[in-house]
Amino acid sequence: MTDKPTSPTAEGGSPQHGPEGDPGRRKFLARVSVALGAFAGLLVGLPVLGAVLKPMVAREPRVWRNVGAVDDFKVGTTVAVSYENGATKPWAGVTGKTAAYLRRDGASEFTCFTVNCSHLGCPVRWEQSADLFMCPCHGGVYYSNGDVAAGPPPRPLARYPVRVRGGNVEIQTTPLPIDGRVPGPS
């Protein structure tokens, strides 16, 4: 290679002797540039971070959802029911729904269990004839009242608020029980 490329900055002279060679002024300009850059960064960065992280503080409305007439449920049985979440987006499709286990204890007494194992949240299966909830993931087992019967779950199955209104059973939409707990009704 004959015409060896040369760097244009190589002959640019020492920065110490430019027209703006005053060290105090140079320090000032550097600080102002950094401060201006930080200002612009925060101006855009803070709202961007806020938008991305806002699910961390999200609170969805609690709504009572009708899951059927009282007489649809037989006393002493547990069945899976499902209902729409509190703040479903139109594009959520079926993922905007939540399942729960509903047990009729008496004439108008119901208990509603989350389907999520208190160990890691896998969906437990209700085994009617064995009278047990069993989890497929790590072998957690619960009695029909949700108490831990065996396996790794640290807590009983969490419960959702349930009530009877006008002959219908209603379940209150609640956040997914993180660490096996359902936040109290609001």
Binding site: E60, A92, G96, I178
Partner: peptide
């Protein structure tokens, strides 16, 4: 920050349109 992290993963308090 556990529960807040969990909400971040779910993009809300439960599964929904924004999770994916």
């Amino acid at each position: 920050i556990g529960p807040a992290l969990a909400r971040f993963m779910l993009a809300g308090e439960s599964l929904g349109g924004q999770t994916l």
